[in-house]
């Protein structure tokens, strides 16, 4: 239990703070659920910047724009309990570097991905050691990137991609009982962010890629109406799980726009329920994937801009150098 390499807290452990307001009956707080103020196909803004970590071959920092509720809570705080959260992560690329001595010969670039949450990234404190969900994210990220990198141009070398998540997305609204949803929906958004940031960092490291791969998320949600009943399921892009009462299914993709190819699909939840409940055929899994692809297209424009901006800075230097 005790980890000798770290500073441990009290041996008996500690308990997260319990707020009096959350002890009240569920009906008492349900009014506090943040509301989505975006159109169903409107994405949150992305902040993406490359090259902030000079000791890495490539790096990128990515931040989601806070949802309306969070932005409001920031500017005029009403409660110490944040209504939702907004993804913040840093990605570094190290390499191409020699493979470890124990590795066998590889004619291609060997990709290693690693995703870790900071202990303060989520509503519940995260452990220092990677848990299953973090490993899962790493594997999804690797498959998303493996199809993009031109690996045969970099024989017998390795590329390490490390992502540190400083702030994660919520899996659900904090006021809902922890067991009210089965799936950790926030992970989908985190994956999409990881893909976009890693893509920017790889471009910053100038590793050959087929395209700038971007991540996107779409979900089929059924929100509460004003009367407290659930409305018919709707397809929404770039969902913030805190803003929805019930997410029926969600999909994250890694998408290459110039080739119209998908390198990774992660679909969770029961989308059949949504399409069964209504006659709307647009709520099948294909619609969900299309929605996620559209979200990824949106992320790609930001990604392309960030990469282009850094490439122009780079080229500008070249011209300046010649002029001097």
């Amino acid at each position: 239990m005790t980890d000798r390499r770290r500073i441990n807290g009290p041996p008996s452990g500690t308990r997260p703070a319990v707020f009096a307001s959350s002890l009240k009956s569920a009906s008492g707080i349900s009014t506090g659920r943040p509301q989505r103020e975006r159109q169903p196909n409107e994405l949150r803004k992305l902040f993406l910047k490359t090259g902030l970590i000079p000791s890495a071959s490539g790096s990128a920092y990515l931040e989601f724009e806070p949802s309306a509720s969070l932005a409001a809570a920031r500017s005029s705080p009403q409660s110490l309990i944040p209504p939702s959260s907004a993804l913040k992560l840093a990605c570094t690329v190290h390499g191409p570097k020699p493979l470890p001595r124990s590795a066998s010969f590889s004619p291609n670039l060997v990709l290693t991905t690693h995703v870790k949450y900071a202990p303060f990234a989520a509503r519940q404190r995260k452990g220092h050691i990677r848990d299953a969900s973090e490993r899962d994210l790493g594997v999804h990220l690797e498959t998303a990137l493996r199809g993009v990198i031109v690996a045969e141009r970099w024989p017998k070398s390795g590329l390490d991609i490390t992502i540190t998540i400083l702030e994660a997305e919520d899996d659900r609204w904090w006021g809902d009982a922890p067991d009210s949803h089965d799936a950790p929906w926030g992970m989908m958004n985190v994956l999409a962010g990881c893909i976009t940031a890693a893509s920017a960092a790889i471009a910053d490291a100038r590793i050959d890629c087929l395209d700038l791969v971007a991540g996107g998320v779409a979900a089929i949600v059924s929100d509460e109406t004003a009367e407290g009943e659930t409305s018919s399921p709707k397809l929404m892009l770039d969902t913030d799980p805190a803003e929805h009462k019930s997410i029926l299914s969600a999909c994250a993709v890694a998408y290459m726009p110039s080739r119209d190819e998908i390198t990774e699909i992660w679909l969770k939840g029961d989308h059949s329920k949504a399409s069964l409940g209504t006659d709307d055929k647009n709520l099948g899994h294909e619609a969900l994937i299309d929605g996620a692809v559209n979200a990824a297209r949106g992320a790609h424009t930001v990604l392309a801009e960030a990469v282009k901006e850094s490439a122009e800075r780079f080229a500008g230097l070249m011209l300046g150098g010649n002029a001097a």
Binding site: T50, G51, L52, P54, A56, S57, G58, D204, A205, R206, S310, R313, F314, A315, L317, M318, G320, G321, N322, A324
Partner: peptide, 21 residues
């Protein structure tokens, strides 16, 4: 990027910083 590094290695003007590595 074809830059124009200072002529002598020991001279003290490092090339302008870049964000690429």
């Amino acid at each position: 990027a074809l830059r124009n590094p200072s002529a002598a290695p020991s001279s003290s003007t490092p090339p302008p910083p870049t964000t690429t590595t």
